[in-house]
Design a protein around this nucleic acid. Sequence first.
DNA 1: GTCTATATTGCGATAGAC
DNA 2: GTCTATCGCAATATAGAC
Lengths: 199, 199
Amino acid sequence: MAKADCRDKLLEVGTRLFAERGLYGVSIREISLEAGASISMISYYFGGKEGLYAAVLTAQFACFDQIDEIRRPGAEPLAVLEGYLRWTIQRHRNNPSLLRFYTSELTNPTACFNRIVAPAIGKVIRILAELVDEGRRQGLFRQEVQPVSAALALAGMVNYFFLSLLATQDLISHSPAQDEQLVRQYLAIFTRGIVAAPV
Amino acid sequence: MAKADCRDKLLEVGTRLFAERGLYGVSIREISLEAGASISMISYYFGGKEGLYAAVLTAQFACFDQIDEIRRPGAEPLAVLEGYLRWTIQRHRNNPSLLRFYTSELTNPTACFNRIVAPAIGKVIRILAELVDEGRRQGLFRQEVQPVSAALALAGMVNYFFLSLLATQDLISHSPAQDEQLVRQYLAIFTRGIVAAPV
DNA sequence: GTCTATATTGCGATAGAC
DNA sequence: GTCTATCGCAATATAGAC
């Protein structure tokens, strides 16, 4: 096998299989077999199974840093919240594995959780909460709204839509063609709840 | 060990360990050891590891049938939706393991998913969607609201609050003492979004 | 850098004594 | 109904050839 292909291929196959069945549901035998490489290559490149898993997780959660671009200073809080919705949907579309690692780590945390996962999630929620708080101080949102509760509500709505897919695909279309409508539905539900009522 | 204690103890310990680390993250050796029983008792009572896991899952999802009591016919849709929020929070409080199995099965489904998990979740979402649809036909909710989207939004908000606990406990109190406030926050966000605007 | 071969450990299941 | 002992297999990791 060509030089750099081996490492990349292991990472790619590992990502898919770990996403499908979790860290303990997959053997490195299976990963190396499917990647067309020898099992010893996993120790060579990643120092073992947990090392490969950590590398996969690091790559998966790298995109969370984009939240800083979503939140451009001076922008309308409401526009940024809409941007968060679109960004999150796009993340799930570009990478269907992400949510698997996200929820798998939240419910059955591994050794990587505190180092990789918790900071990434915490950062996003914190920024969303700051946005809500900002809008509240500007008088755009109701004073009774708790910023962190609202942030979790927004994140919960959009993430749960994808999380529940396997149990709800006969109830609603999960096709990307419906994404724009999804944004409008969720943004309407969320904002008409927190925007200050007209006097 | 006394007669019925053995089976019950295995189920109890299995529930805790499977919730913490998933089906493949625990060995039946470990379960039997912690339960103070012999490893062969798991085959004797449950037909093996997967049988024990199936028994655990069946017990965990049995409470989902209570949704029929929440939805009393003739009741105000809004009051029932509030009842759903309280019921869901109480479920998580009474049994912190439930959400682990819930999301673990949604992201890394086992052989039990189609038989036990998907019907339970699907039923709750379907009933919530019917409630929203009912309220919409009564003119209580906005016509543009899609019932299933709204149902997923409500379920997503409350479930994600508990799902995200490990990554957000430094941002917001997850104490049961705050549950009443949580209900008010989420109900306000949700209903002020879907209730028809006063003319 | 990649392989084969192997060491070592732990797994789930079960036979058979009591 | 519960146990001990063991079987057969698959797991991860690694030594050493190329």
